[in-house]
Design a protein around this nucleic acid. Sequence first.
DNA 1: TATGAATGAGGGTTCATTCAT
DNA 2: GATGAATGAACCCTCATTCAT
Lengths: 207, 207, 207, 207
Amino acid sequence: MARPRTIDDDQILDAARAVFLADGRGAPTSAVAQRAGVSEGTIFKRFGSKDGLFFAAMAVPDPTEVVALARRPVAVGQERARFEALGLALVGFFRDVLPRMMCSRLHPHFSPELMLQGETPPPAQVIGALTELVERCVATGSMRTDSPEVVARALVGTMHNYVFLEWMRVPQLPGQVGPDTADFVRRFVTMLWDGAGAPGTAAREAP
Amino acid sequence: MARPRTIDDDQILDAARAVFLADGRGAPTSAVAQRAGVSEGTIFKRFGSKDGLFFAAMAVPDPTEVVALARRPVAVGQERARFEALGLALVGFFRDVLPRMMCSRLHPHFSPELMLQGETPPPAQVIGALTELVERCVATGSMRTDSPEVVARALVGTMHNYVFLEWMRVPQLPGQVGPDTADFVRRFVTMLWDGAGAPGTAAREAP
Amino acid sequence: MARPRTIDDDQILDAARAVFLADGRGAPTSAVAQRAGVSEGTIFKRFGSKDGLFFAAMAVPDPTEVVALARRPVAVGQERARFEALGLALVGFFRDVLPRMMCSRLHPHFSPELMLQGETPPPAQVIGALTELVERCVATGSMRTDSPEVVARALVGTMHNYVFLEWMRVPQLPGQVGPDTADFVRRFVTMLWDGAGAPGTAAREAP
Amino acid sequence: MARPRTIDDDQILDAARAVFLADGRGAPTSAVAQRAGVSEGTIFKRFGSKDGLFFAAMAVPDPTEVVALARRPVAVGQERARFEALGLALVGFFRDVLPRMMCSRLHPHFSPELMLQGETPPPAQVIGALTELVERCVATGSMRTDSPEVVARALVGTMHNYVFLEWMRVPQLPGQVGPDTADFVRRFVTMLWDGAGAPGTAAREAP
DNA sequence: TATGAATGAGGGTTCATTCAT
DNA sequence: GATGAATGAACCCTCATTCAT
């Protein structure tokens, strides 16, 4: 057998991710090599080209935690708690994954297939698992809605946007929300559950 | 007395925006020049550097339409319609603005101040105006919520995410949602208004 | 008659000289234009090209003062004083003229003819006038030498080098010489007159 | 383990010196690369920038030959011969070094420290060594002067100017001097030794 | 297999020069 | 005559990629 690799691909990918996210995809391969403690030649031997390295480093991991949490059976009365847990898990997931998605999407050689690690792209996995959760809750009678996937996307979207604004470092965001993520999620789930419409203004009657 | 300017800055900025969003910020200045029908020299005279050009082209416009719509008084019974209109307006706004924000945020020389055209950054303007709208509705009795800004951010976030997934060209998004934006918005507002929780599972009692 | 020029060529040449000597001949024409208070177009109208401007600005003026001083009759007993005055005049001349000569000589388009303002190039004028002075002194019996032009060139060369080292800003020049130019010149003339050889070591006998 | 360097820094520096002195410091780096038989990339890897290359190529070498000649003990009766040898050595030194000094001094990024290779700048080394030689001769009784450093600077200056006029290609230099350098040096040393003043016009009595 | 020296194409930027006003 | 906007050729420099060791 050949001499074993002392620095494995993952270490290189971690370095590449750190460098590309900090300095943009224009950062030189040499910077990645230095950070990973390998020579430039090694990187090209392993990943073929800079693009190969880039897209490997930006690959979106499967949202296993979120999906698992969505699929786990919910005890009666624990539905809201589950949604809160999912909200927090989504925030964590997006903090890790959004920068990669945006960075690779902006690469001129991006193609949607790059996000297909397994069969289903991670965003679809997340929305799918959440939609199924809502459908199960509807079936149990603990939720009621005509559009389970809209509920799922409201949760995903609100957490996504929360992380996005954080990442954009937008100054002067209004109001009390911001520092306390758990509080934000709790309020959101409350709204999701109860609605924000006053009694008697039910949507069913509206246009 | 001297030769007057024949090329408008805006023509150059439009070309730059098109080129940078299509090919990434690495696209050569010469491509911008060619598309704008100017020489490279002119671009550098006007904008000083490629970075100057880039950030000028990526500047986020004030969300005047959305803000105006949020501030206009709401007739009784028209609240939900207004939120639907706002949802659609947000989708339009984000389609224009999200790519710019992401692209400039990923530039290594990005700084949050670059988004401060006026006094308030555009995302904060949007969330602020929507929050005030919710507060007014609460005051009139047509809505009820403890967290107006969370309602605002749910609307913003869901539309943001809708546009984002579109832009990512994520394949295999589950379900019926996708092609018909108006329908998506309508379903979302319904959920926002009525809530998705079954009667008797009200959040107020939960942790 | 056409409108008179409000800014004459000499003002432009002064500006050009200042700019080129400070920032090198690579300094942009626009810098000269700005300093002179004219537009770039004007400069090209007047001088044809940047090279034209450059060599016009670097032209070496005739050494009228030095030459006049050398040609003026010398009263008996005033010979050494005259040489001291000439030394000081040469220092002044070189301070003005050496940078121009070096700068234009280093231009790739330099040609010796460029220094021919009149019939005789300035360095030749200086050496010629001094040589004649020495010859006159020899004729009057106040000097004795076989090589009048060598005496002239010793004076010129020593002053030249004095200014050159000043201009080079050479640090750590040894000894007491430096700050007091008049003293330096005086000591040099003393040496020129009396020689530095000990009596009895006369050169005539040597190889 | 990696590929060893195949190109010597000195080869590059020699090429750079030749190119810059011939075509001015504005000559393109590509011309240097071509002349040295290297790629431009290599040059920048080695020297960092064009300025780095330029100042490295223009660095003034230590005047070892001149200094050694000045320090070597002088046999009685050989003093004048030694000064003649020094004059010739200085001419050789200046032919090599003057163009570099002038060229780098005219660079806008010049700073005097650039000439400090060792501890003492080359011009100061030369003048220092010559001054000490004169002092030794005075001590031995073979010379007499109050200003040894002025004698040194007269020698240096005259040779400097000799080379300078050569380099300037000044046409029409008067007189017999020019082609025969050895003759010029011999005449100069004679004058240096015996003085040019007629007996009885000694400087000591003058102001 | 790992290294890093060498390459050379490409891109940002400057600036002499032209020319419409 | 004077202006300064526009041009585009050239130049410095970077960096992905190759390859001898």
